[in-house]
Design a protein around this nucleic acid. Structure first.
Lengths: 165, 165
DNA sequence: CAAATATGGTTGCGAATCGAAACTTAACGT
DNA sequence: ACGTTAAGTTTCGATTCGCAACCATATTTG
């Protein structure tokens, strides 16, 4: 029956990431946190999310170490949700998603550009880089076992199968 | 009532990306597609996802231009789902998520490393880069209006508010 | 050709999750 | 003391999910 298998059994880090961030609203809450929102009511108002869901998601993000929950010193009704280091580590993933969305949506808002605040120049499109900084496409990539690193991979010689994972 | 507001009203490209990829399983289907799976039964077996949900997700991914659905030439019972250019464009986002998951999960599988298949060297950690390739953290970034690009941004001089968006 | 099998779904139904609004609890502010 | 604000919790109906069974078509087998 409808019991949700944790998804974490699917092996790779992606599954873990999705367990933490894969629910509706999680990424938008994160975006709001990146944009400097701290309080429950701020998230609620900004996102228009139902309060019970917001409560649940914030709890889960805290539980998973993405946000830190601290009662406010000056006003003890308030609670502050702040990004942890782990949460900040999601910036590349979030930005990559955003850039992808911007590239392929014709309706989304492009009024603000993410820039290097030192010089005001836009950041680069996020991509996959080799150790020597070359940009790599999917066809230039392959999976290798940790003990065989450094051995070139004959990509596309075989399709992916369970045995590979 | 539980009617799902499209989320797309939240402005930026992230909302659009989440509308396309934000549902449970979507990213794992994509990962499977990147790993060379083409057919309904392959996805079904690999992921253990319910068939109706798989059908629905594949349909949505096709509808959104991430996958292309083509009946197989040689066996017309079969259907091939292949990544489009738009779908391939999700590689950085997916990899960033995976890397994040690997960094912060202690249980996930690290038996395979993504490498540059030319030389077998692992790819770099995905990050945000300035136009001159410096790596940037969140505190070095700011939002700028398109017509003011090139003007340094005084980050953190003000918190994010609705007016900024 | 008929029957069996493979592939890619669709349908029905119960369980889990989501969403909106009302309610609760505790802390300020005056 | 009284109203207000902040952060949730509860309630309840709507939606979605997961499982199993069923269906439609194409291919293989006898």
């Amino acid at each position: 029956m409808g019991i949700r298998e944790p998804l974490g059994e699917l092996g790779c880090g992606l599954s873990h990431a999705l367990e933490v961030m894969g629910e509706r609203w999680s990424f938008l809450i994160l975006r709001a946190a990146f944009n400097g929102l701290y309080h429950f009511e701020e998230f609620s108002e900004e996102l228009g999310i139902a309060r019970n869901i917001l409560s649940n998601r914030l709890g889960k993000l805290v539980e998973n170490g993405v946000l830190e929950r601290t009662p406010c010193e000056t006003d003890r009704r308030k609670v502050e949700y702040r990004l942890t280091e782990k949460g900040l580590g999601l910036l590349p993933a979030m930005l990559a998603l955003r850039q992808w969305g911007e590239t392929y949506s014709d309706t989304c808002n492009r009024d603000l550009v993410l820039v290097d605040c030192r010089d005001g120049q836009p950041v680069k499109q996020i991509g996959v880089r080799a150790h020597d900084d070359r940009e790599l496409g999917w066809h230039e990539l392959g999976w290798q076992m940790p003990d065989k690193i450094g051995t070139p991979v004959d990509r596309h010689s075989h399709a992916y199968t369970k045995e590979d994972a």
